[in-house]
Amino acid sequence: MIRQPASMRAKVVLGAMAVVLMLAGYTVLSERQHRLNPDDTTIPTWSLLGRGVSRIVEVGRVVPGSEESRSWLARQKTRWLVADASATGYRLFLGLLLGVAGAVVLGLLMGCFEKVEAFFAPPLSLLAKVPPTAILAVFFVLTQTYTQMCVAMVAFGILPTMAQAIYLGVKEVPRELIYKAYTLGASHAEVVWNVILRQVLPKIIDGVRLQIGPAMVFLIAAEWLGGEVGFGCRIRLESRLAHMHTVYPYLALLAGFGFGMDAALRRLQRWLCPWCAGGC
């Protein structure tokens, strides 16, 4: 029957089965490809993937007498994983932080004040339709450093869509709740802080969750353009050499990164908005 509920056990078993099937399919495919061409690197075997992972996590070449040879911390930074994850993580978090902060301020102002809405709504809806990857060249010219370009790409990539989502969320706050807050003696600022923001907080967190995927797309696209560290750069460099045994672990890392952030945000939502446990 449509929408018949499934037990938690059935859900876990089915989910695990899907992952196992995917891995088994990959194993069969890579073994077959390897039989046809033992030097193939496009669909590497598990052992080759293991070598790729080792390459990612091992300490890089250390020049005697250099800072890396003296400092443990500096030596860790020669590992691709550490260098790339810290560079990409920094760009992603800074971009997300700026984008979300801008979107929250803009969305709240637009939802609360009709004149602000009238001013910002047309350009925002236009900007939301422009694919940020298409304006990469603009950021490339306008920003001064490579990191700035990546951060701007993420921030401006997510801002219009998220601001629109927040603004629509604010518009959905029942007027009665706002009127009631005023009858309870709230000031305008208190209505925004204590009523509207609290009411749309789950939607903001949901918005961030939904924007993690696009933000990573924008960031990888920006990193793909140049630079030396970062997941996008590494994937570009390694895929040029057809080193898919290094590229696939990076893709898995990206997936894990996104999944981890999503799980953390869901946990944050449960903690900050316990009233939303049954769905807002």
């Binding site: 009631k180 609290r198 908005c273 009233w275 939303c276 807002c280």
Partner: peptide, 20 residues
Amino acid sequence: AEPGRDRGIVYQRYSLFPFL
């Protein structure tokens, strides 16, 4: 001429703040 604490209101719907 504007809402104030001297007039309390109870609506049929949305009578409470759902997050409290």
